[in-house]
Amino acid sequence: MASREPNSTISATAGLWLGIIGIILAIIGFFWQPIWMGIIAVVLGVIGLMSPQKPVNWISIIIGAIVLLIGIL
């Protein structure tokens, strides 16, 4: 398993897909079910942080948190 970080527990490809799916769900959350989609996007981003693909997963967390705040307010 070739990885950029020796401590990562998830492969780079899986981390990338978790981040992309989180971003897509967060964008859907702007239009439909913002609380649930925001929570799911944040959770996927946090799980994805265990991979080398940290920037994509941070974007998922940030957008998911924004959607969650919009849904609560």
Rank of each mutant, 00 (worst) to 15 (best):
N57Q: 08
I62T: 11
S8K: 11
I47Q: 08
A65R: 03
S8N: 14
I27P: 03
F30D: 05
G64L: 02
I35R: 12
L73D: 13
N7S: 15
L18W: 00
I70V: 12
V42L: 12
I70M: 14
I23L: 15
G71R: 06
V42H: 00
L18D: 06
M50S: 15
I61F: 09
I59K: 03
I20H: 04
I40W: 04
N7Y: 15
S11E: 02
S60L: 07
V43Y: 06
M50Q: 15
G19R: 05
N57S: 09
N57L: 06
F30S: 10
I59S: 14
V42C: 13
G19T: 02
F31I: 13
L69P: 00
A12E: 15
I28P: 01
P55C: 08
K54L: 04
L16P: 02
I23G: 08
G71Q: 06
A65N: 07
N7W: 15
I24R: 01
G38W: 02
T13M: 12
A12Q: 13
P55V: 07
F30P: 02
S11P: 03
L25N: 12
I66C: 10
A12P: 00
L68K: 02
G38C: 07
I62A: 15
V67G: 10
G29D: 01
S8M: 09
V46Q: 06
I59P: 00
W17I: 01
G15N: 04
G22A: 08
G45E: 05
L69K: 09
P55G: 09
A26T: 02
I61L: 10
N57R: 04
L49P: 01
L68W: 07
I24S: 12
G22E: 02
L44E: 00
F31Y: 14
